[in-house]
Amino acid sequence: MTALGFLYPGHSAEDDYPRMEQLLGSDVRLAVVHTDIGEDAQRVGTLREMGSAERLAAGVQELRLTGAEAAVWACTSGGFVHGWDGAHEQVRALARTAGMPASSTSFAFAHALAAEGARRVAVAATYPEEVAALFGEFLAAAGFEVVSLHAGGARTAAEVGTWGATEVLELARAADVPEAEVLLLPDTALHTVAHLPLLERELGKTVLTANQVTAWEGLRLAGRRVNAPSLGALFTREPIVQARE
């Protein structure tokens, strides 16, 4: 049994995790611990506070009780808004507090792209422009070329959590361009797991979504390979053990 722990802010698309757990098989457990979201607002200052060391530490004891062997901060914007160096310090602090390997969704995207061998990416973000731009900067710092970045302009996670297949596909299409090797949907508040086969079929390329890569990152930290084609092309390849830090 591989047990993985995820610190997830608030309640928006956390039901993606039991769905993934079913698709991954009976020997993988994905435990979700909810952290305090504070104000539900997609603003830089608010997002930085949401991902503060104090807020993450508050969920660590419950996470330890799940028996998790690795921890992932399941919030993309609550990581990359700290910048490349700040996001590293965030996961280092989480690892020290939790006493286990740790990462975040922001780094999960970087590691998954490296595993895919991709360099040119399109980003379909739910965020306002100022937040989406910071994700673009984070990806550039990781060595990737953002050839298209679309900002959906959503102001709250609660709003994003209500979007279904139609809205998700529209968002993806708004960002997709032929030169992009992979398309990214970076918001963990967005339900995407059920739509992965549709997205990859309609776009004709690998699609990486926030909750999907977060689960993949936990497995990578635990040294596990799981073949689960219904979770997209990413889950048909062996995760890399080492990635650019």
Rank of each mutant, 00 (worst) to 15 (best):
T166Y: 14
A172G: 04
V147W: 00
A174E: 08
V123A: 04
V182N: 03
A175R: 00
G136H: 04
R173E: 11
A122L: 12
A118P: 01
A142G: 12
T126I: 13
A141Q: 11
V168H: 02
T162R: 15
G152T: 11
P186K: 06
L139F: 04
L169F: 09
E145T: 15
F144C: 06
G117Y: 00
A180M: 04
H150L: 13
A165P: 12
E130V: 12
A122T: 10
A142F: 04
G117H: 02
A140P: 04
E181Y: 04
G164R: 12
V121I: 14
Y127S: 10
A189M: 08
F138M: 00
A142H: 08
A175L: 05
T166W: 13
E116A: 14
V160Q: 11
D187E: 14
L113V: 05
L184H: 02
G164L: 10
A133T: 14
E181Q: 13
G117A: 09
L113H: 05
G161V: 07
R120I: 05
V168A: 12
L171D: 04
E167K: 12
T156Y: 10
A115F: 02
L149D: 09
L183K: 03
E145M: 10
P128Q: 14
P186C: 06
W163Y: 15
E179Q: 09
A141P: 00
A157W: 03
R120K: 15
A124R: 01
F135K: 01
L169T: 14
W163A: 10
L184D: 03
G153P: 09
R119D: 09
T126L: 13
R119W: 06
D176M: 00
A122D: 11
L183F: 06
A118K: 02
S148L: 11
H150N: 12
G136A: 05
L134Q: 14
T156F: 12
L134P: 09
P128L: 13
G143T: 02
E116R: 08
A180P: 07
T188F: 07
T166I: 12
R120H: 10
T162Y: 11
L185D: 01
V121E: 01
R119A: 11
G136W: 03
E130A: 14
P128I: 08
V121C: 02
E179D: 10
F135D: 01
T166D: 15
A122G: 15
A114I: 06
T166K: 14
A180L: 06
G161T: 06
V121T: 06
T156C: 10
A151P: 06
V121R: 01
A118N: 03
L171W: 03
H150M: 13
R173Y: 04
P128Y: 07
F144E: 05
A142C: 15
L113C: 04
R155S: 13
L184E: 04
A175N: 02
L184P: 03
A141D: 15
A175E: 00
A124H: 01
V123G: 04
E170F: 05
T162W: 13
V168C: 07
A158E: 14
L190Q: 13
L169C: 11
A165I: 10
D176P: 02
A114C: 09
T166S: 14
P186N: 08
A125M: 04
A165W: 10
V121S: 01
L134F: 09
